[in-house]
Every structure is written in C-alpha cells, then in structure tokens.
C-alpha cells in the first residue's frame, strides 16, 4: 500500500524543489533565526516574513490548503500557552479582555502573540522544506551538514520501516475486525494494547533479522553512507537573494 504522509508533494517540479537540500536547510535555519530574534512589537517585519514564506509556497506549487492544514499542528502548543496567560505578566489590564477574576494584561497578550506568530511562521517554513524535499534527500542534506551519523541512520531506518509497520498494524486491525466485529470500548482498548505489544515484539525480531542482513554485508558498527549532491549556481543565487531580503527587512523596515 502507498502512504502519503511523507513525500506527498516532494516530487513536483519547481525551482524550490530543485534546490540543493543543504541550501534549503541553511536558508530555513537563517529564517528561523531572524524570526525568533525579531521583537514581536515590530508587526510590519512579521508581515514581510509571512509574505516571504507564502511567496516561496506559491513558487513551489504545493497546494496552499495542504500547507495550512499541516500548520495546524501548532494549535495544541499554542493552547497550552494560552491557558497560562491569565497568570502571566503584570502591568496594565487589557480592558475588556478580562474574564471574571482573571486579569489579562497587555504584556501577557504580547507573550501570546509572540508564541502564536513566531511558531506559526516557523512551522510554515519547515513544512515548505519537508514538503519540497524527498526524505532521502533531506537526510542527505543533513548528513552533508555534519549532523551525527547515528541520527541520520535512525531517521533513515524510520523512513524505511514506518510504512511496513503501518501496513502490519493495518493487517492486524483487519484480522481483529474479521473475528470480533462488535466489541465494547474496554475490550477494544485491551486488544489494542495486545496489538501494540505484538507489534513491538515483531519489530524487535525484525530488527534482529535486519542486523543479521547488515552484518552479512560487511557492517562492523561503523556507518558509512554515500550520497551525492551538487551545488548549482541557482542554489547560490537563491540563498543570496533570500538572505539579503531577510537583512533588508531587518534593516529597512
């Protein structure tokens, strides 16, 4: 079965897709850096950061709807911050925002806005990176940027086997439904618990077999990976222009 939660749009053709993953990663991190260190009071700057992200999304041809939907992942975190708001900060009460005994202050609202805007922009930009880069290439980029090999290896195993686990879980699910079509909630939870246990044991055994296969092919504990990338003129151009736009926003606005 094909699964699409990774690599759904990463094989489209666009200038953003064609970029060297290293360039994309570095651009992303410099963008994050700029966003995080801009004081929240300077609203125009954030508008421009947003414009920058959205124009990248447009150029990459990834459906806007997809990006926006994915960016909803920040909602739980932002809510968590929002719960704490009434207890945060001191200073002037923000007039009509008061809720019964809780006083919401201007500074607390600013903190909220700070978290909301910055995390949203960061998540949006990360989605652009991951949606425009096939996962193996992304790993390749990180590897060339000297992320520890062990992380790369773990991530690449995850990428290789997560779909197999999902399929396996799907099959177990079906087998259960076939034999026990109507179950109470408690029984249901019990069975899911057993299924998770079984899945764990199976993956443990698979891990053993995979390790055997690796040893058979000369693996002796040292991870060597080969992946090639080529840095093109367009990559340099993209990074230079993106970075100078960021500087421009910082200095001029």
């Amino acid at each position: 079965m094909k699964h699409h939660f990774l690599d759904q749009y990463s094989n489209l053709r666009s200038p953003v897709h064609a970029l060297d993953p290293r360039v994309k990663i570095i651009t992303l991190f410099s963008f994050l850096f700029f966003v995080i260190f801009t004081p929240i009071t300077q609203a125009p700057k954030f508008a421009l950061y947003g414009a920058l992200v959205f124009s990248t999304i447009l150029i990459s041809r990834i459906p806007l709807e997809f990006v926006l939907k994915r960016s909803l992942v920040i909602v739980p975190f932002v809510l968590l911050v929002a719960i704490g708001l009434p207890f945060l900060g001191s200073g002037d009460a923000a007039g009509s925002y008061n809720i019964s005994i809780f006083r919401i202050t201007h500074s607390a609202l600013l903190i909220f806005l700070n978290v909301l805007v910055k995390s949203w922009l960061c998540v949006l930009s990360m989605i652009v990176l991951t949606a425009t880069t096939p996962f193996p290439k992304l790993l390749n980029g990180f590897q060339r940027l000297k992320l520890p090999k062990i992380f790369i290896m773990i991530l690449s195993f995850m990428y290789r086997f997560i779909f197999i686990f999902i399929d396996e879980f799907g099959r177990m699910h079906r087998a259960r439904d076939a034999r026990a079509p109507s179950l109470g909630r408690i029984q249901h939870i019990k069975i899911v618990g057993c299924m998770i246990g079984t899945l764990f044991v199976r993956s443990y055994e698979r891990g053993e077999r995979v390790y055997t296969a690796m040893r058979s092919r000369g693996f002796n504990g040292e991870i060597k990976l080969t992946r090639e990338l080529e840095f093109k003129r367009f990559d340099a151009f993209f990074f230079a222009s993106f970075f100078s736009l960021l500087i421009l926003i910082l200095v001029v606005v």
Partner: peptide, 22 residues
C-alpha cells in the same frame, strides 16, 4: 523476506551498502 534485506531508504543506497562497507 526482502524487507529484512533492504534497510536503506533508496534502492541505490541499499545496493551500495555492501561495497561501501568494503
């Protein structure tokens, strides 16, 4: 089971695994 034999993300990396280790 070929899924035990192939543990890298792409076909190239999998086939290259042995030679690279050599």
């Amino acid at each position: 089971n070929p899924d035990d034999q192939m543990f890298m993300p792409t076909v190239f990396e999998d086939v290259a695994f042995g030679p690279v280790n050599m």
